[in-house]
Every structure is written in structure tokens, then in C-alpha cells.
Design a protein around this nucleic acid. Structure first.
Lengths: 107, 107
DNA sequence: CCATCAATTAGGCGGTTGTCGAAACGTCGA
DNA sequence: TCGACGTTTCGACAACCGCCTAATTGATGG
């Protein structure tokens, strides 16, 4: 999906990863939807509180639509979805987020 | 369109402006298209070299399509289009850009 | 005055995308 | 085992979007 740090996975790491321009485009496309942006904001504010169902209580969308949005965010590399039994735990990939911002700042 | 600094217009200023969340969304939508992102990159690298026709030489799109993209970037507040006679001079609004980045970084 | 040129507008075409309901899948508890 | 539940997949539909050509506007110069 997205480049890992190469020095080992660390979940919501904060060290820099390098993003290709197509990955940056994927991220921008992912963020261009209000619902997805709101998901990212929510994940960013609470460190690890994200189960899918928690999101549904806040967003006025069906489960199918939420799943679709989460898939796109995951494809863009912005979030990690850990499946445990029935539940899906979401977390923001802060390393990717930081690299994305650094990328835009370097313009 | 977009909030000015309030202390006077300065074109490609660099002091902070405050963006509403709908303006931020407009910017994200504007950036989610590869062509528009490329326009922003190009404007960012050369300070004031932007006439519409210069852009057309680099982007493989028709004049109508370019005009459409420029209009969206202008609506989002990311660029300024100064019309002088036949020509349109483009410039990146660096103040807006910086505020946008700061906004995302504050997540 | 008219031809030319830069840019915008109008209108339409085709592909993409957000959305949903329904069905399927996998897990957990009774 | 069976039903309930969280999540995903499927199939479809409507809206949106990027793109073009053609027509228009507005300015410049012969």
C-alpha cells in the first residue's frame, strides 16, 4: 500500500516515511470528501478510540458507505484497520500524515 | 471569497489568514485533481511567471479545461488571477497556502 | 474596420464517485 | 447449533466532474 519506514512496523509511528507523488495524490483525493476528512479529524483527536460503530454514531451514513470510506482511507495509507473478531479498530497513521504535510510544505 | 488578512491586501502575502472549515474543504477538493495540483506546484516554484498560455504549454489540456481548473483554484482562494488586457496573470496566494497547511498540521 | 489572438462560457458526453438496500461473511454468546 | 451483531461485498442509481468542441467576449494591431 504505502511505504513503511523500512526499519520495522510501529503502528502509529511518527518518523518520516517517503511518499510517492501518486500516493500523495491518493491522500489528497481521500481527504477531498467531507465525511472522510471528518473521520481523520476524529481519529486524530482521540488516539485509539476508533471502532467502526463509534464512527457510525457520529456520521449520518450507512454501514456500507462508512466501510467504503474507510477502505479508501486505508488504501491511501492514512489509516490502519486492525480486525479483531467482530470489530475493526481504526488508527491514524501519524507518520504518513506528517510526511504528507511535510511534502506539501516543501512546495 | 476567502478571508483576507484584514490589515490590508498584499497579493501573495505570507501572514496568516484564517480559513473556515468550508474553505478548507474547498481547497482540499481543488487539490484533489492532478492537473490542479500541478498548476499549484508550478506557480509555487516560479514566483510570478504565470500566464494562462504558459500553463497550456505544459499541461495537455484544452484552453477551456484549463480555464475551468483555474476558476476552481481561484474560488478555493488558492490563486489570484489578474486580468490585464488579453492576458491573465496567475499567482499563488502563499498566505492562504500557509494557513491551509497550518490548519492541517493542527489536527 | 476587420482579422487575430487570449481567455471564458455554453452545452454535452462519458467516466467516476457517494450513496443506499440487500445479501453475505465471520464472530460471539446463549 | 443457532441467532444476533459488526463489518464487508454486491449491484444499482443519481449526482458530480473532467474533458472536449464550438461559440462568445474583449483586447490588439494592421
Amino acid at each position: 500500500m504505502v511505504a513503511t519506514t523500512g526499519t520495522g512496523e510501529q503502528g502509529t509511528g511518527s518518523e518520516p516515511v517517503s511518499l510517492s507523488s501518486s500516493q500523495r495524490m491518493l491522500i489528497l483525493k481521500a481527504l477531498s470528501d467531507p465525511r472522510r476528512m471528518e473521520i481523520i479529524e476524529r481519529l486524530s483527536s482521540c488516539n485509539d478510540c476508533g471502532a467502526c460503530s463509534d464512527m457510525r454514531e457520529c456520521l449520518p451514513i450507512s454501514a456500507a458507505t462508512l466501510s467504503h470510506h474507510l477502505h479508501e482511507l486505508e488504501t491511501a495509507g492514512l489509516i490502519t484497520i486492525e480486525r479483531e473478531g467482530k470489530f475493526a479498530h481504526l488508527s491514524l497513521r501519524r507518520d504518513v500524515w506528517q510526511s504528507f504535510l511535510a511534502d506539501l510544505g516543501r512546495l
